[in-house]
Amino acid sequence: MIKQVVYFINFCAEVLVQFRKIIRRGHVGIAVLQKQILFTGIDAFTIISLTALVIGGLIIIQGNTIFVNLGNSSIIYTVLVSVVTRELGTFIPALIIVARSGTAITTELGNMVVNNEINALTSMGISPVGYLVVPRIAGVVLSVLPLSVYFNIIALLAAGAVYQVFYDVIFLDFIFNLAAEIELNDILIILIKSVVFGYTIALLACFHGLQVMVASTEVPQRTSKAVVHSIASVIVFDIIITVIFYFM
């Protein structure tokens, strides 16, 4: 266990060292970065859209019933900002990225270890951390950020659409009321959480992938560990960032 922690710390340090060399290695790392953005960012738009539509719509349907009974339906805007913008707008995309990209990264790197591909890179003098890990982390971070912003926009627009269709609230009124509720901190929290979540998910996925030693049977074991650690880390960082932003 202690050896694992030491290895993880060394791995994080190596990632930082290699990040500094990314510009020098640009000509060979850029293709990896592009592929990562394509897979993590662009290919995930469908599932992100679907989830955002459902979340936005459901909050209105569930929330409106409660708040109308309480006699204060305008509180729905506060709830939307609190739940979607401050929490689920980054948390749900992070979970989707763990499930889609985190598992894919761990499996891919694990299989590369088994097939001697990591050894091949090292033997050529190409740092596997520099060539494989750094572009993947950069790719995931650059994908999570626009995906989270997109999730927020779609979820809030879906909420507005459902509000108009089912409860006859004019869409433009909904937008103005919502805009009045959103503060600068809410925008900032999306940016910070996206970067922290993306970095953590990709780092842990790569770490566990490269922890595979020799056998392909280790790959699913490592993948499941990467998922558990990523979700746990996202929850912990989510709490920490929320506490820093809204309670301090």
Partner: peptide
């Protein structure tokens, strides 16, 4: 390498 070890 024994198996070629091409980057997949």
């Amino acid at each position: 390498f024994q198996n070629g070890a091409m980057i997949s």
